[in-house]
Simulated scan of single mutants.
Amino acid sequence: MVTHVITGAGSGIGAAVARRLHARGDELVLHARTARRAEELVAEFTGARTLIGDLAAPDRLSGEFSYQSLPERVDSLLHVAGVVDLGPVGELTPEAWRHQLNVNLLAPVELTRHFLPRLRDAQGHVVFVNSISGLYAGPGWSAYGASKHGLKALADSLRYEEHGSGVRVTSVYPGRTATPMQAKVHQQEGTEYDPEKWIDPESVATTIVMALDLPRDAEVSDLTVWPGR
């Protein structure tokens, strides 16, 4: 049985990927911040297991996991969860920087470190759902962009380090996608949100599942997904 550990499965791209993998019978281990959220995920994805921990406090994740039942096998680790808080450099507080760096970068670092032995055993796959902001950060996107540029560096380094172990590493850089996060971005920008203008999360999920399903003789390192409208 193929087992996937997924963060951010509650909405947007993460939920779209989880639905695809669940529908074909793969085993899911879904991250949740609270026990209540874990119950909601299990109700939506029958048969899935959950892993509870606060991504905003990455230094506590290993301790939280030590009290939970972890999967013996991990075929893929999908980092999809993320947060965004826009603002000029002169106005963003250290708290805003810290929160985005913790959730978007340091939590994936810690989760990857934690599951890497299992990924090596399975010759598994790590997928980092990054952002166009991981390649270019415009005005107001400094903290979010810094966290995503760091995520790119993490993926690139991990890919070289683990090539010999058979672990594949893919970064996906979606443009603006019709998710709850995008609705929040528009609210912060003070602009009207029209989901029809942006990428459907299902389209991004298609690229992720494609990368996961590639035969062992190939690896996709980077995928950029732009709005087609």
Score class of each variant (00 low, 15 high):
Gly90Ala: 13
Val83Ala: 08
Leu70Arg: 08
Asp121Met: 12
Leu51Trp: 09
Tyr136Phe: 12
Pro71Gln: 06
Ser69Asp: 12
Ala15Ser: 15
Ala23Tyr: 02
Asn130Ala: 10
Glu95Ser: 12
Gly25Leu: 10
Ala38Tyr: 08
Pro117Tyr: 07
Gly63Asn: 11
Ser76Gly: 12
Asp121Ala: 15
His125Leu: 10
Arg24Cys: 07
Gln123Glu: 14
Glu91Ile: 09
Leu111Trp: 02
Asn130Lys: 10
Arg49His: 11
Leu106His: 09
Leu105Tyr: 04
Leu21Ser: 04
Glu72Met: 06
Phe45Asn: 00
Ala32His: 08
His31Ser: 11
Ala35Thr: 14
Ile52Leu: 00
Asp26Val: 08
Glu91Arg: 12
Ala56Pro: 01
Lys148Pro: 07
Arg60His: 10
Gly138Phe: 08
Ile52Met: 00
Asp26Leu: 05
Arg37Glu: 15
Ser142Trp: 02
Gly138Ser: 10
Pro71Phe: 06
Ser69Arg: 13
His31Thr: 11
Arg20Ile: 08
Pro108Arg: 00
Arg118Phe: 06
Ser69Trp: 01
Gly134His: 05
Leu105Pro: 03
Val109Ala: 03
Leu106Tyr: 12
Val74Thr: 05
Arg120Thr: 10
Ala107Arg: 02
Pro58Cys: 06
His31Tyr: 08
Tyr144His: 14
Glu39Thr: 13
Phe45Ser: 02
Leu101Tyr: 06
Arg120Val: 13
Asp54Arg: 11
Thr50Ile: 01
Gly134Ser: 06
Arg49Thr: 11
Glu44Cys: 04
Thr50Gln: 01
Glu95His: 11
Arg19Tyr: 03
Gln68Trp: 10
Glu110His: 07
Lys148Ser: 02
Val29Trp: 15
Ile52Pro: 00
Ile132Pro: 00
Val103Lys: 00
Ile52Phe: 01
Leu41Gly: 00
Val103Asp: 01
Ala35Met: 10
Leu135Ile: 06
Val29Thr: 14
Val17Ser: 03
Gly25Thr: 09
Ser69Gly: 09
Tyr144Phe: 15
His99Asp: 11
Pro88Arg: 13
Val83His: 01
His22Asp: 12
Leu135Thr: 03
Asn102Glu: 13
Gly140Cys: 07
Ile52Trp: 00
Tyr144Leu: 09
Ser62Pro: 07
Asp85Ala: 15
Ala56Gly: 15
Glu91Gln: 13
Asp121Thr: 14
Ala23Thr: 14
Ala143Ser: 15
Ala38Arg: 02
Ser69Thr: 14
Gly63Asp: 14
Ala137Gln: 05
Arg33Ala: 11
Gly87Glu: 05
Gly63Arg: 13
Ser62Met: 11
Asp85Ile: 13
Asp85Pro: 03
Leu70Asn: 04
Thr50Trp: 00
Gly134Asp: 08
Leu28Lys: 05
